[in-house]
Design a protein around this nucleic acid. Structure first.
Lengths: 220, 220
DNA sequence: AAATAATATTAGATAAATCTAAAAAATATG
DNA sequence: CATATTTTTTAGATTTATCTAATATTATTT
């Protein structure tokens, strides 16, 4: 089964929106995510339904199929492996990789991905801390919670970000937070939910609840 | 100026066919090279003419413009840099790289190519010995001649192949010829033009004129 | 040079992916 | 519950790249 680049992008968007725990994925949501019009989405949903990567009944809703899931995970795998390559080998900043990886993920060559995976030493997480599915689509997730949900004096390690917009990533870079940083909660302000943390046992950081809720931590 | 993937492929084909020293590039030649129909080529030539990357008068012929040349060289640069990456870093065999590089060359990101170039240590030649244009489109060629044109007892180094079909590259691999191999002409058979050479001062090789004419040598 | 062959172009169709505007269905509101 | 609003889909157009079949142009050959 072969998908076009556009189909792959739609399927990936559907997968991501499905994962967000929403009851069902709406045409409008997809349109927003992919930056297109609802009319185009309707059309594509019909096509994806025919290709049996989603189950689709018009006006009703959609559900991704096992086949669709597998294909989406392969695309995500490629995207994240390329992100690792760009950051680890070509020294891209983690907020510069998305657009390029968005293109690279559509390169068709199983051998290339196999070799790339080996070359990068079979990474399990991308630079944003998101898990990289293996060749069979299996994902190794880490149990994690939002930074603002941690208690005072708790210790952990930043493992991912929810919002990976360039602006947010640049902000994190600027204040010295990064994936892998060891942190400790020093104080929490009840009033506005803001938080004070210690990074790598040396740097103190204040952040709003808004920022903290977008940082995911592996507790220890 | 932005070119689509298809336009880039046509332009690259035109560039390559122009370089082959032919008086002019025919619609049929392009169709053969790109594996498409002459009707499609005519259509595309009109478009490329409008974009001023070629000068085109129908039924008459075409000529690549300075702008077209520059764009073609950038695509070739990307293609060859990716080939170096695939062979040097991902350990692809030199006959496995073409198809993948054909896809990778269309990734749009000047930063990516700049970084890739640095990562590969600014290579001047690709795995087939073809020169890699620099960021300005300048090409550093090596003076070279076909192996069958060398005289007995002459010494040199294999620097490129004319025919880079998978079949030919596999054959070369099999007999132990490779880009960079030092060779010496031991004997030439006048009757059929076949040739006997010494590879790396240890291995004797017989090859037909057909094969030898597809191997390019830097004389020394 | 006239007939034939080869080459190149146009005309008209098709497929993919998109759009706007209009219609249909589902949901929300008074 | 009837109406208004939102959401979704369809209809019809557009762009890109391709094809086949037909036509036009150029080249070759008696």
């Amino acid at each position: 089964m072969e998908l076009t680049t556009a189909e792959e992008n739609y399927l990936k968007a559907i997968y991501h929106l499905s994962e967000e725990g929403k009851k069902s994925v709406s045409t409008n949501d997809i349109a927003t995510q992919i930056q297109t019009k609802p009319a185009s989405v309707s059309d594509m949903l019909r096509k994806l339904g025919e290709k049996e990567v989603i189950q689709y009944r018009k006006y009703y809703g959609l559900q991704i199929t096992a086949l669709g899931m597998q294909l989406a995970l392969q695309t995500i795998r490629k995207h994240r492996l390329w992100e690792v390559f760009l950051v680890d080998k070509l020294h891209f900043a983690w907020d510069e990789v998305h657009e390029v990886a968005e293109q690279l993920e559509h390169i068709q060559s199983p051998l290339l991905i196999e070799r790339l995976d080996a070359y990068l030493n079979y990474p399990k997480f991308d630079p944003h801390g998101d898990p990289i599915p293996d060749a069979y689509g299996d994902v190794r997730t880490r149990p994690r919670c939002a930074l603002n949900e941690m208690d005072i004096d708790q210790i952990g390690q930043i493992v991912a970000v929810k919002d990976s917009s360039a602006a947010f990533l640049r902000y994190l870079d600027k204040v010295g937070a990064y994936i892998g940083a060891r942190i400790k909660v020093l104080d929490k302000v009840e009033f506005d939910g803001s938080i004070e943390i210690l990074v790598d046992q040396k740097k103190t950081l204040f952040m709003s609840k808004d920022v903290a809720s977008n940082i995911l931590v592996l507790q220890s």
